[in-house]
Amino acid sequence: MSESKGLFRRVWDAIRNRPRLAAPAVPDAPVQPTGPYEPPPEPVPLVVPGAGDVFDLHVIVHLRWQSPPDKRLSYERAEELSRVYHDTAMNSVLKRVWQLARSLDPLYPAQAETEMNNDPQLRRGWCFGDENGTVQCVPTVRVFLDPKLREHKNPFEIQRLSIEEEHNLGMARDELVRTRTESWLRGFQELETFADLGKDERQFLLPYAASLSDERLAKVTTVLARDRHQRYTDLVGLLKVASNDHERLGLFEFANAYDKALQTFCRQMGVGASQWMLADFGEPEAVDSPSTGASQ
């Protein structure tokens, strides 16, 4: 008895654990296209003369076939009618694009493309058909540069891009040099314990800070400091001689005017006019003001 139960149990377990067969898959219903029919763009561009009749505009046409405003057209019917009226539609597009291109500069294809796509006739499109059905064709275009014009412009565009990149690189480099130089000026201020980094201190320290930042800037600032020093020296001598000569001639008003000019110059130099010495410029001689010499 136990053996029969054991056999029965084994048979039952085998039946219960047998994998079930999956139900056959039902194929999905094909998706029916809806809406307007839009075939791929025309493979061959329309070549139309631009303004001046020297270069052309190359126009790629994209046709959109749809129901007219007052009728309902299925996708299949729109596709069928598009094949029937394709050549007629392209001929209509060519005529209108030719007219528009006559006033468009072939040097600017993007602008020409915008002008064409905004044309009222192209935006409305054309309706084709008969008593068996009517379809509306609405074109859009893409405009490309004339290959001859592109070949002519190519080296100039490359040169323009190179100049722009060199300019951007130079500006970035100059900004870094300026930042480093300013950092060194502040460093000299701390090392020299200057209370303030004014105009005179900056003029004096700039060549040294520039030499630690950039070689070209160091050369320029060194020449600038040398030229400024030479011009200051020449101006000091001129003012001194002119002031003394006019005083000997008794022209005190001229001497006074030159004295004021000398004092203004000293203020611009950052040197006190009352304690100014030519020793500051390599001449160990004090300058007496004309008023002092007159009183003596």
Rank of each mutant, 00 (worst) to 15 (best):
13 D>L: 10
13 D>R: 07
14 A>V: 02
15 I>C: 11
15 I>K: 10
17 N>Q: 12
17 N>Y: 10
18 R>K: 15
19 P>D: 10
22 A>K: 12
24 P>E: 13
29 A>W: 01
38 E>I: 07
38 E>L: 02
43 P>C: 09
47 V>N: 05
48 V>N: 05
55 F>P: 03
60 I>C: 03
69 P>A: 14
70 D>T: 15
72 R>T: 15
73 L>T: 09
76 E>G: 09
80 E>I: 05
81 L>E: 07
86 H>W: 08
88 T>P: 01
89 A>L: 05
97 V>K: 01
104 L>A: 01
111 Q>A: 14
111 Q>T: 10
113 E>I: 02
115 E>T: 04
117 N>S: 06
127 C>T: 15
128 F>G: 07
147 P>E: 05
147 P>I: 05
155 P>R: 00
157 E>N: 10
160 R>C: 04
162 S>T: 12
164 E>H: 03
167 H>R: 14
169 L>R: 14
170 G>M: 13
170 G>Y: 08
173 R>M: 09
179 T>E: 07
183 S>I: 02
185 L>P: 11
185 L>D: 12
191 L>R: 08
195 A>I: 07
197 L>N: 09
200 D>R: 00
201 E>I: 12
202 R>Y: 13
209 A>R: 10
212 L>Q: 14
217 L>M: 15
227 D>T: 12
236 V>G: 04
240 K>P: 01
244 N>C: 01
248 R>L: 05
250 G>E: 08
250 G>R: 05
250 G>L: 04
255 A>Q: 09
263 Q>W: 00
267 R>S: 04
268 Q>N: 15
269 M>A: 13
280 D>Q: 13
282 G>P: 03
284 P>D: 12
